[in-house]
Amino acid sequence: MNEVIETILAHRSIRKFIDKPLSEDIVTTLVKCAQSASTSSYQQVCTIIGIEDREKKEKLAELAGNQSYVADNGYFFVFCIDYNRHKIAAEMKETEIKETIESTEAFIVGSVDAALAAQNLSVAAESLGLGIVYIGGIRNSLKEVSDLLGCPEHVLPLFGVAVGYPDAEPGKKPRLPIQAVFHKDSYQSKEETENLLKQYENKTSEYYTKRTGGKRTEGWVTQITASMGTPKRTYMKDFVQSKGLNRL
């Protein structure tokens, strides 16, 4: 294996950082790495908003569910779907692209572009010895987040990424068996999936039991079915459409 692969395989989320900001050079390098990610049809639908203002970071931490590491990190990035640029480009050429922007396909393209950019940034950060954690919690109060960041129509914040110098060494959570996520030639049978999930339930139960000294013993199957028992952020469809996205 090379260093890139070793960095990717060593990933774990960091939720405690040393009180040390990232330098401007590092921030710029990370954003350039994000920009270098693949983008569908050269559309470049992602915009990254860097949060440097302490009060805004603290407000975002509150809106994300009082997650302290949203405020206490080396730098906080918010990744957005952004078709505002494309709308302006169309106006410059006196062209109408409203229906394309509002399509479900465009929403998927923008979401994928943002995710690819964020993962490039994350791998680059970890290669520099930094730690990262994704923050989906900003979608708890997305209108407030959008207003706070001044996002116009056709711009939708999707998630944040906190980056910084680690002040913790959490254990690496075991992933699903590769056979559960990598199917050859066709989707695997229900029986195969059930067998793999039973093995994974036992493995993750052992992980949590050891990590918490027996305070938590549930495995992944138990954990995930409980957390998904009630839909979350059910306002999202209406809000996304109010931003002029995913209407068609």
Rank of each mutant, 00 (worst) to 15 (best):
Y187R: 02
A125M: 10
I138P: 00
F76Q: 00
V27P: 09
I97H: 12
S242A: 01
R85D: 10
S146P: 05
L245N: 00
E3R: 15
S40T: 09
K98Y: 14
N195K: 10
Y200P: 08
Y208L: 14
F77Y: 05
Q35K: 14
P21C: 10
F107R: 01
R15F: 06
Y75Q: 02
V31L: 13
D147M: 06
N84W: 15
T230V: 12
N2V: 15
E218H: 15
I49L: 06
V161P: 00
K198P: 02
V31Q: 09
K57F: 04
E58P: 01
K210P: 08
A114D: 06
P231H: 10
M1P: 12
T39C: 11
G136E: 06
G136M: 03
T209C: 14
R233C: 07
L30I: 15
I51G: 00
D147A: 07
T29P: 08
P166N: 05
V155Q: 03
E94A: 11
T225N: 12
E192H: 02
S227G: 11
V221P: 01
V133M: 06
A90W: 13
S146W: 05
L130I: 11
P174M: 10
T225K: 09
M92Y: 15
I101P: 05
V221M: 10
K20D: 05
K237R: 09
S38Y: 12
A34Q: 03
L121K: 11
A61S: 03
L196S: 07
Y134M: 06
N202E: 13
V221C: 05
F107Q: 01
I135S: 02
E206I: 12
Q67G: 00
P157T: 02
S36L: 12
L128Q: 11
I108Y: 12
I108G: 07
L63G: 00
L197N: 10
E144C: 07
N66Q: 08
P177W: 01
S127T: 08
Y235M: 02
S141K: 09
E194W: 07
P152C: 08
R12G: 09
H183C: 04
T230C: 06
I108S: 11
Y208K: 14
L245C: 01
A115K: 12
S13R: 09
S189P: 01
Y207Q: 11
D53T: 03
Q179P: 04
E201I: 11
E153N: 10
T29M: 15
A226S: 13
T193S: 10
N195T: 13
